[in-house]
Every structure is written in C-alpha cells, then in structure tokens.
Design a protein around this nucleic acid. Structure first.
Length: 461
RNA sequence: GCGUCGGUGCCCGAGCGGCCCAAGGGAACGGCCUGCAAAGCCGUACAGUCGCGGGUUCAAAUCCCGCCCGGCGCUCCA
C-alpha cells in the first residue's frame, strides 16, 4: 500500500519494519480541558487507519500517549487550587469518555508522560554525554544545529527556521542558539518536580513523546502520526532528539489536516471549539455522523465543520441504517460468510492509496444501493445477502457501527408492537383515519414506521 | 515575509495525464412502490471557464510558470 510520508513529501510504498506488523504512535492530548472536535478528528483518523490495517491482516500496536504534565496543567491546577495530578486525572477521564462515545478503539498502550520520567532522564543523559545537549541553570537544551537534517520534516533549513523564530519568540539568553529547545526544565517554585542529574525539574514536551515511542515501540517503528500543527516544533524536535541520540525514529510520518470552524482552525487557544460532549448531546446520531463526515473527506484535507454538514452526514448514517433494517427484515443471515469479492477488491484499492476513505465510502454506499435493490428483488436478487453483508462489514471496518439486529428489546416494545398491530387492523378495515392517528402518535413517541412487503417494521428516530 | 496544503455542481466532497461529456453523500425534481406517507428502487436537472492567465503534450481538473484567494505552520496547539 502507498502512504503519504511528510518527511519525504511524497506518496511512498509502505514497508513495515516487520512483515505483518504495524507499530503506530499517535500523539495524544495534553489533558487540562475539554476535548473538542479537533481532537476527535485526530483520534478518529488514526482509529480508522488502525481498524483498516487490522482488517487487512496486520497485527497493529497502536500507542497514544497522555501528556499529563505541562504548563497548561500547572496553570489550571494553580487556578483551581488543585494538584496537577488531580487536574490531569480528571481531564483524562473526560477525554477517554469522549473517545469511547465516539467509538474510538482504545489504543493498545496509553502511556502517561509522568510514568516515563526515568526513561526521559536516561535519554537526556545520552544526549548530554555525547555532546548533543548542554545543561545550565534553566535546564538542559538540545544543540539543534548539530542535528543532521534538522528541519527536514517541515522542509526548512535551520537558518530559515531561525528567521521565522526571531519575530515571535523572545530570545532566551540561557540558550546557545535561539533554535535550541528544552529537554529538561529546571524547577520553578510551586511546580511539580522530579530529581535529575541536572537538578530538580520536569521534562520538556518533545522528549516525552520521543522517549515513550522509542521505549514502547522500539527503534525504527513504523508510523508516527499527529495533527499537522505538530509538524513543527513538536515532531521536528522529537525527531531531532532521536537522531542526536543515534537512534532510528519512525519510518513514516503521517499528519492529519485541521478541522476548521468559521474558516479557522478549531482550537483551545482561539476558543472557537465545540466540545465533543456537547456535539454528542445535540443528537444521538452525531458520533457516527462525525465519523462519516471525516471518512468522506481525505484525512490530509482541511475540513470545515458547521451544522449544515453535520446534518448532511446524519442523513448519510440513516441511509446506512435503513439498508441494515431492510436486510434484517428480509432475513439476511448474519452468520453467513458470503461476501462480494469484487467490492472488497475495490475497497482495498481505494484504501491502499493513502487511506482513501472518501473513495472507500463511495464503494460502501454504492454497495448499499445495490444491496437495497437486490433485497427488493431487483436484478441482483440472488446476491442480496452477499451485497448486504459486504456493505455492513466494510462500514464496520470504518467503525461506523452498523449492525444487523432487532429493535424489539426495548422496554416499551410491547406497547409499540400492539399499536402497530392496531394500526394494521385499522388499515385492513380501511379505517385510514385511525391508522394515521396511530402512526402520528408513534411519530410523537419517536418511532418511525415502514410498511414493507414483509409487514410493518418500526425503529427509533 | 518564508514554508506548506488547497480553490471541482445548490451544499459537502472524490478524482490528480487518456477509462472524466468528472465518484460518493446531502438537498431538488419526475416515475415505480404505498390507502396516503416514510423507506427503497429507477430516472432527471445541475460542473458547458474543474480559482484566473499562459505553457508542455497527440491528450490536462490532473504536469510546468505566473497571479488572485483561503487554510495550516513559523516554538500553547490534534
């Protein structure tokens, strides 16, 4: 399969470190506030990739960290009179609940930065010992200009980077060079600290991910992903640390584009974000609608979100569900292994081209249409089961959570069933006024009826 | 300013040298089905400049150059 590698700036063949296995490190959040739709896009992007890679037979080790110590957490703790640990644990819980609600599979490993401080210190020691880093009163810094190919990930030379940095960054006299960045930050009053050979302090942001990724996945791991706003400085600096330590970092770099709202990146700092929790509360279909929307846009393309596109996506989800209901009513055997091989092939071709989910979704929807036609007794009637099961399987590879099931296990199912029966009796005696009255009543209860050749079925809206 | 990604129908959005008189979803319209609806199926209208202008090529939405517009990055960020 081909993937787009940020470092090479090209579509390249994906050759994993070890045949049949994929190691993926996707940068997780700093937990200090509400996770928003931008985090959802990032997490869902790698969730979808992971599901697909597993479906085509790879053993995937997906690592997503939790950054549980940083300035934002410290500030929040200060504001609220809590400990950093309390703040981080609370927001981590909120984050994980949001991820679960979005049907994002838990990563295989979810490391916490504070559990890897020893590894980070060891990493930094290597860098200091080999002359790549230097310590002073304010911390330990990496000598960026010594790093071969620093800036390659952003396609800029150190000089070009320095030029940009001058305008926005205060010059720090503690650094030999403005480009150098902190591996270790010396303790400030009131901050949580760890002991180190350079005095009490705490790790810098970039060393956290670099140390965790290498410790858990090992050198030369396959994929490193994150939002494209992390290319510089975060990923650039992680990479620099690994190179300076003489270690092979990720074989490929993946970056998802931003999610915009009102023409700008949704972000905490701009304050223009919709929290995942709020969006999910607005409509029970929104978790799946958001996923569908993301699937229908390539992960490397900026996506503008608004109420309109969410509504459109909800309709798409309903279309998927309607086919599944039709399949259920027509007695499709979910234990059957019948599938449409050609559809699988087309799906894989789409996905093997840098995770072409929009085209993959097109294949799914096209299969839904064919399955509907077949289930209604069209030209492909003999393929109905295979087509329906194929569409369902592929939608589920994407985590769209469609399932052949019955809605009869609800608490008020008996009542609804008897109302449906009453309506059908009214219909039989051509008392359409009564039939419509019952239907309206059900509609008010959030129940939608469908009169099919196999009788009347209902579902919740 | 520098780097980078992008500008495709009413909306969202694929395609990235011929298979494109441009996928898929949403909305719209007509037909079938239905007691009527809904759902579904079939069909139709939408892209006549694929941001604009040049160029390369037998062939360009797709490649090259210039311009305009927008996103992201330039040390908080997914």
């Amino acid at each position: 399969m081909k993937i787009y590698d940020t470092l090479q700036d090209a579509l390249v063949d994906f050759v994993p470190r070890k045949e049949g296995e994929v190691s993926l490190y996707a940068c997780g959040p700093t937990v200090y506030s509400h996770p928003h739709l931008g985090h959802a896009r990032q997490a869902m992007t790698y969730d979808i990739m992971r599901r697909y890679l597993e479906w085509i037979g790879f053993d995937v080790v997906h690592v997503a960290n939790i950054t549980d110590i940083d300035d934002n957490i410290i500030n929040r703790a200060l504001d609220e009179g809590k400990t950093e640990t309390e703040v981080a644990q609370y927001w981590e819980k909120v984050y994980i609940e949001a991820m679960d609600a979005l049907n994002i599979l838990p990563p295989n490993v979810r490391p916490h930065a504070t559990d890897y401080v020893a590894e980070m210190i060891e990493f930094i020691t290597t860098l200091v010992d080999n002359g790549s880093a230097y310590a002073n009163d304010s911390g330990v810094y990496l000598r960026v200009r010594q790093v071969e190919g620093y800036g390659d990930l952003v396609h800029r030379t150190p000089d070009e980077l320095a030029e940009g940095a001058g305008a926005r960054v205060e010059v720090d006299d503690n650094k030999e060079d403005p480009l150098d960045f902190a591996l270790w930050k010396a303790a400030k009053p009131g901050e949580p600290t760890w002991d180190s050979p350079w005095g009490a302090g705490r790790p810098g942001w970039h060393i956290e991910c670099a140390a965790m990724a290498l410790d858990i996945l090992g050198d030369d791991f396959d994929l490193h992903g994150g939002g494209n706003d992390l290319v510089f400085p975060h990923h650039t600096n992680e990479r620099a640390e690994a190179i300076a330590a003489g270690r092979s970092f990720s074989r490929y770099w993946l970056h998802n584009a931003m999610l915009n709202i009102g023409g700008e990146k949704m972000s905490k700092s701009l304050g223009n974000f919709d929290t995942i929790k709020d969006v999910l509360a607005q409509d029970p279909l929104n978790a799946r609608a958001l996923r569908l929307m993301l699937l229908q846009t390539h992960y490397r393309k900026t996506l503008e979100i608004n109420d309109d596109v969410m509504a459109q996506a909800r309709e798409g989800v309903k279309r998927l569900d309607a086919m599944v209901r039709k399949a259920t009513n027509n007695g499709v055997d979910i234990t059957s292994t019948e599938r449409d091989a050609e559809t699988f092939t087309r799906f894989r071709e789409a996905m093997d081209h840098d995770f072409g989910t929009p085209e993959g979704m097109a294949v799914v929807f096209e299969t839904v249409r064919r399955a509907n036609g077949a289930l209604d007794g069209g030209d492909e009637a003999d393929q109905a089961q295979a087509l329906a099961l194929t569409a369902i399987e592929l939608a589920n590879v994407f985590g769209l959570d469609v399932a052949v099931g019955d809605s009869a296990d609800d608490d008020d199912a008996d009542q609804i069933e008897s109302m449906v029966t009453a309506r059908n009796e009214a219909k039989a005696s051509k008392d359409y006024g009564e039939a419509d009255r019952i239907r309206d009543e059900l509609t008010a209860m959030g129940i939608t009826l469908e009169d099919t050749a196999n009788g009347t079925v209902w579902h919740r809206t």
